[in-house]
């Protein structure tokens, strides 16, 4: 133990077995790369929707297998680490958290694919194009969901508990946006029954965006578990704060 470590309690010392550090780093960076990829998938899927571009949506769908491949790869690495290194303490929490984050990222990838499919459905269906009014909620929800995902990946990369708490609490806003989007969609259907087909597609899209927020929230909760050793998944947002985390 070097005196250096006491000067900076946040700094994590290296393992005696250097290869272990390397393997943990590899898993970590794989998960973050996967995060970057699904972020890009969401952005492209939403761009395709906004720009009425079914071709771009097809590319999103085609790329989902890369996300799946990374999911399998990360899982394998996590299992190998557990079996071969017998991690304890923070290392164990890190591997468990990354392993779970991967599952959420894979699901986010699936949501991007679903949005892309709906986009193709909307623009290639026979009949009229949807009114812009119908799509308005998807844009505001998309920027919220993307921000949550960006913040979740940020706090995972920096192990920033403060930011993780913010993300976990921020999910409520997206949920209420989702509820009002549903109410508006119901109104459009009642106004003009020709809207029904598109309204259903849009419902799926806002539903996907809401789910992305849930997954981002999960990831931020894994970060809290990783750093603080506390499972906060079922703690109410009101009582979830720094004070709660400091309680033994």
């Amino acid at each position: 133990m070097t005196p250096k470590s006491t000067q900076n309690p946040q700094q994590i010392e290296e393992h005696t077995v250097k290869r272990f550090d390397q393997e943990l780093d590899e898993l970590n960076s794989l998960v973050l790369r996967m995060g970057g990829l699904v972020q890009d998938q969401i952005t492209r899927a939403m761009d395709a929707l906004r720009e009425e571009d079914p071709e771009a949506a097809r590319q999103v769908i085609a790329r989902d297998h890369v996300v799946n491949f990374m999911d399998v790869e990360a899982n394998e690495r996590a299992v190998n680490l557990l079996a071969l290194r017998q991690p304890m303490g923070r290392d164990l929490r890190m591997i468990m958290s990354l392993g779970k984050a991967v599952t959420d990222l894979e699901r986010i990838g699936d949501e991007a694919e679903r949005i892309a499919r709906m986009t193709i459905h909307i623009y290639e269906a026979a009949g009229s194009q949807p009114s812009h009014k119908l799509l308005r909620d998807t844009h505001s929800m998309s920027s919220l969901a993307k921000k949550m995902l960006r913040d979740a990946l940020d706090c995972l990369a920096r192990l920033d508990v403060e930011l993780a708490l913010e993300v976990a609490k921020g999910d409520a806003e997206l949920d209420s946006e989702f509820q009002s989007a549903l109410r508006r969609l119901a109104t459009y259907i009642m106004e003009d029954s020709r809207n029904v087909g598109h309204a259903i597609d849009v419902t799926f899209i806002v539903r996907s965006l809401e789910r992305i927020g849930d997954h981002a929230k999960n990831i931020s909760e894994y970060v809290i578990f990783l750093v603080k050793g506390k499972d906060v998944r079922h703690v109410s947002p009101e009582s979830l704060d720094q004070d709660f985390l400091e309680q033994a």
Partner: peptide, 17 residues
């Protein structure tokens, strides 16, 4: 073994000595 409180314990059980 999952969430030690002291830094020295953490370092030891995770193989950082």
């Amino acid at each position: 073994f999952t969430n030690p409180r002291h830094r020295l314990t953490e370092d030891y059980i995770t193989g950082r000595f």
